[in-house]
Design a protein around this nucleic acid. Structure first.
Lengths: 349, 349
DNA sequence: CTGAAAGCGCTTACAG
DNA sequence: CTGAAAGCGCTTACAG
C-alpha cells in the first residue's frame, strides 16, 4: 500500500547507533530533562529532517491512549447556527493540535447514543455535545468515567456538567419587551413541543415579559417529530387564523420563522404592518428579507471559543473537577419586521 | 484513566483456554473460513456478550493501517452549500462504517496543504477535497501514493482524478438563456477573480448563451482575497453604476448575490423590475426574499452520494484505476427576481 | 547520560 | 481445526 516504507524511530536509532529510547526522548522534548548531550540532539534532529521522519500517530495513540481528537456531536451540521459554531470550534481546535470527528444527531436519542459509542470506540479525548432530550444517562456515564464533556445549546437540570450557551431566557425576554414597547399586546409564541432546556428558557422569558405588562399568552407548540415543512406551515396558519387578535409573533427558532412567514403569506398578513415578527437566531439573510427580520442573535464566536476552552481545560487538567456553567448574552437585532408603521424599505440592517 | 480495564482478546482467550488467534478469527468473521467448530464459536460469542468486549479500534488501526476514517476538506463548513454536502456525506459514511475528519480550507493553499498532511498523519483511508487553486501538486502526490481521492466542486484540467460536481457550464447557460428569453439583452456577470474550474465554467456558460443571442458581455471580477463584505458591495455598486444599460445580473455565487442585493439597494434599483437577478446556488431562504430570488440549484443529495460512492469504490477496489468524472445537472428555480413585470408578490416558490 | 526490553491489543503467516 | 509467536511503532520503567 504505502509507496515507500515509512521511516520509524527504530530506523533513526539504527542509523545513528543509538537506542530508540534516546530518539523518543528527543522527539518528545524530553531531551533536556533526560540530559541528553546537545551534540546528540543535533545529530538526531538533523537525521529526522533528512529522512523526513513522520511519527506514526496511530502507534502513538495506541500506546498512549491519547488521540488528540474531539468528538463533536451536534444537532445538524447543515443548520447555519451549528455550522458556524462547528466552523469556529474547528479553527480553535486545529490551532491547539486537536482534530474533530463530527456527527449530527438530528435530535434522535438513538443516533446520539450510537455516536457517543462510536466516539468512545475511537478513543476521542473529549466531547462537545448538543444533547437530545433523554440522553442524560449516557452523558452521566461519560462524566463518571472522567471523560471531559462540555454540553452546549441545551443542558440538563440536575446533571452536573460543563455547559456553554446563550442566555435564552433574557434574550427572549428582551425581544418580547421590545414588542410590548412597540405597542403589541397580543403576542404569540410559536415553539416546538421539545422539552429541551433552551426551548423552555425561551418560553419562560416570553412569559416573564408578558407578565410585566399583564399581557395575554398565546403559545403554540408545534409537534417536534420529523414534521414536513408544509405540515408545520399548516399548523401555524391554522393557529394564527384562529387567534385573530394576535398582532405579533415570536418564533422560537429560525426554522419556525421560515414556516411562519409562509403562513403569514397564506393569511395575507403583511409582516411589519399587520403582524410584527421576531425570530430567535439571527441569519445573514434576514437583513435582505422584505421587510428585514428582527432577530435575537447568539454570540457565535464567543460560544465556540468558550466551548473549546472549557473542553481543553478539562482535558489538560483532569483533576480539577469544577464544572462551569456559562451563559452568554444574546443581542437583539431590531429590523423592520418588528417596528411599528414600517413600510417595506429595501435593505435595512 | 479508564474506569475499568477494558477486556481484550487475550482476556477472552485466557478465560476459555484457547488462543487469541481463534478469538480473532471469530471476531473477524473468519470462523467459517478457518473451520472453527460451531460449539467454540458459540462459546466465544457468549463470552464476548457477557464481558461486553469492545475491540480496541486504535490497536486494530495501528495493526492494519486502516482507520475507517475519511478526510473531508471543504472550503468552508459554514457555507450552506458545503454544510449540506457535509451533512449528507456524514450520513452516508457513517452508515457504511466510516467516520469523518473535516477541515475548512478557506481556499488557502497553505491551510489545505497543512490539512492534507494532518489527515495523512492520521492515516485517513481516503480524501474528499474541494481544492483551492494551486494545490495540484499535493493532490498528485496523494494519487501517486495510491490514496483514494475524490475532488468535488472544482477540478484540475490535466490532473487525472475522480471528481463529482454540478454541470456549472450548462447550469449557467440555461439561466442566462432564461434571462435572454425574458427580454434582457445587457446581462452582467458578477464573479470572483478565482481561477477555479467551477468559476471558469460558469463564465463560459454565460458567454456561450450571450453569443447565441449576439448580446454584449459585462463581466465584473471581484478580487477574491479576504475582502470584507462592505468592500465587495462597493465594487458591485460602482460597477453597476457605471454600466447603466445593464438590465439583469447573474451572480456567480450566493455570497455575491448577497452583496449584489445590497448594491442594488444602494443604487435604488428595484429587483425584478428595473434589474433582473439570478444567483448560482439556491438557498431555502431565497423564496422568502422580496422579490423571491431565481437561482441555479445544485443537486446536493446526488453530489454527496456520488462522492461517497466513488470514494468507497476506490477504497474497496484499490486496483481499479479508472478515475470517474461525474457532472450532475443543475436545476433553474425560476422566481420573481428574474421574470418580466413582476410586482412584489409575497411568497413565491 | 544512555540502552535493553517490556508491553499496549491487535492480525496473520507458519506450523502441526 | 487450533495454537505459539512475531511484529506493527511507539513510550517508559528500570537499570547501570
Amino acid at each position: 500500500m504505502q509507496a515507500k516504507k515509512r521511516v520509524s524511530i527504530a530506523d533513526i536509532a539504527r542509523q545513528l547507533n543509538i537506542s530508540v529510547t534516546t530518539v523518543s526522548f528527543i522527539l518528545n522534548g524530553k531531551a533536556r530533562e533526560m540530559r541528553i548531550s546537545d551534540a546528540l540532539i543535533k545529530k538526531v534532529e538533523t537525521l529526522i529532517q533528512q529522512t523526513n521522519y513522520q511519527p506514526n500517530a496511530l502507534a502513538k495513540s495506541f500506546r498512549t491512549g491519547k488521540t488528540n481528537t474531539i468528538g463533536l456531536l451536534i444537532e445538524d451540521i447543515s443548520n447555519p447556527f451549528f455550522a458556524q459554531i462547528a466552523r469556529q470550534i474547528e479553527d480553535n481546535a486545529y490551532k491547539r493540535g486537536y482534530r474533530i470527528f463530527y456527527a449530527s444527531t438530528e435530535n434522535s436519542i438513538e443516533k446520539a447514543r450510537e455516536m457517543i459509542q462510536l466516539f468512545a470506540d475511537r478513543h476521542v479525548d473529549g466531547y462537545i455535545i448538543t444533547a437530545p432530550a433523554g440522553i442524560e444517562a449516557e452523558i452521566k456515564t461519560l462524566i463518571e468515567m472522567k471523560r471531559p464533556v462540555v454540553l452546549f445549546d441545551r443542558y440538563f437540570k440536575g446533571l452536573q456538567t460543563s455547559y456553554v450557551g446563550v442566555d435564552n431566557y433574557t434574550g427572549t425576554y428582551d425581544a418580547v419587551i421590545h414588542l410590548l414597547e412597540n405597542g403589541s399586546r397580543n403576542i404569540a409564541f410559536v415553539t416546538t413541543d421539545s422539552a429541551q432546556s433552551q426551548m423552555k428558557d425561551r418560553l419562560a422569558g416570553y412569559k416573564k415579559a408578558l407578565q410585566e405588562y399583564g399581557a395575554t399568552a398565546y403559545v403554540k407548540k408545534i409537534p417536534f417529530d420529523g414534521q414536513e415543512g408544509k405540515e408545520v406551515t399548516r399548523h401555524i396558519t391554522a393557529y394564527l387564523h384562529s387567534k385573530s387578535k394576535v398582532d405579533a409573533v415570536f418564533f422560537a427558532t429560525n426554522y419556525l420563522l421560515l414556516r411562519g412567514l409562509e403562513a403569514l403569506a397564506v393569511l395575507g398578513k403583511k409582516v411589519g404592518e399587520e403582524m410584527r415578527v421576531v425570530s430567535f437566531d439571527d441569519h445573514e439573510f434576514f437583513a435582505l428579507f422584505n421587510p428585514a427580520i428582527t432577530a435575537v442573535a447568539q454570540p457565535v464566536p464567543e460560544i465556540a471559543s468558550q466551548l473549546i476552552n472549557l473542553l481543553l481545560q478539562e482535558l489538560e487538567q483532569p483533576d480539577i473537577q469544577e464544572k462551569q456553567f456559562i451563559q452568554l448574552p444574546a443581542t437583539l437585532h431590531v429590523r423592520a419586521s418588528s417596528v411599528k408603521k414600517t413600510h417595506n424599505a429595501h435593505v435595512n440592517n
